[in-house]
């Protein structure tokens, strides 16, 4: 089974790349995502509850990354098991292209296999479910990334305007992604939706962030202050989930 997709996101490529590798963003954007854990530097595990037609199950996915070419492309391979519901596995090439300074085009090309009940019962529904979940994911992703970008832009603007702004506030573009709608709240540890772990990692990264970094620094720092494994894992998870859920 082959699946391709293209999404236009209103944010610079580095921001998108960063977000694509941010497990917290991913966890928030992936429909039904319950857990994601790093198992080693290049692999992650996620648990996602999903319904494909009559097949309702909790899928466990493991993922690894290769062909890393930040902030442009990578290949992600993975496998998800849903017990009696069956399995999905495959790989995808994900590519980011800067349409201009403000807009990035994400394309992916996935090759996947599904098996068991998922293949037996869901074959007619899989495409539709994939479309639906993909659009849910990307609209949420787009929203979070745009917001984060807008926030970091305005923070940077504020920074420029008011040199007294504490650097930590806008230092971590990634972490602000969790400030989904409360831009007035302090950017660190503020999000009610963020899990404690996310908040913790966020505050850690905030503390690690170099002072004085504005929006330009975020384009430079693809990891956005997060450890590389986190963003790798996050990216891995999203594509695996795409594979598991969408194909």
């Amino acid at each position: 089974m082959e699946m391709t997709g293209e999404y236009r996101i209103e944010a610079p490529r580095d921001i998108v790349w960063e977000a694509l590798n941010d497990p917290e963003i991913l966890r928030n954007c992936i429909p039904g995502c319950e857990e994601l854990d790093k198992t080693d530097e290049h692999s992650f595990e996620a648990k996602v509850k999903a319904k494909v037609g009559p097949v309702n199950s909790r899928f466990t996915g493991s993922v690894s990354l290769s062909n890393m070419n930040p902030p442009e492309s990578y290949t992600i391979s993975g496998e998800g098991k849903g017990g009696a519901a069956g399995f999905a596995k495959g790989s995808a090439d994900v590519h980011l292209q800067a349409e201009n300074d403000q807009v990035t085009v994400l394309t992916y090309k996935a090759n996947a296999k599904v098996g068991g009940k998922l293949a037996q019962l869901g074959s007619r529904l899989i495409d539709g479910t994939a479309q639906k979940m993909a659009s849910e994911f990307f609209s949420e992703f787009e929203r979070q990334v745009s917001e984060k970008y807008a926030l970091s832009s305005s923070a940077a603007a504020a920074d420029t305007a008011d040199a007294t702004t504490p650097p930590a506030e806008e230092a971590t573009a990634a972490s602000t992604s969790q400030t989904s709608d409360q831009a007035t709240e302090p950017p660190v540890g503020e999000s009610a939706e963020a899990s404690p772990a996310a908040a913790a990692s966020q505050s850690t990264s905030s503390q690690q962030a170099a002072p004085g970094r504005g929006e330009t620094s975020s384009t430079k720092q693809s990891a956005g202050g997060l450890p590389p494994a986190v963003w790798i894992g996050g990216a891995a998870i999203i594509v695996v989930l795409l594979l598991i859920l969408f194909v």
Binding site: K113, V114, G116, A119, Q120, L121, S123
Partner: peptide
């Protein structure tokens, strides 16, 4: 059956 994976793709009355 899917020729590559051997999955039964007409496995319910939907297909």
């Amino acid at each position: 059956y899917d020729k590559e994976s051997g999955q039964l793709v007409t496995g319910s009355y939907m297909d």
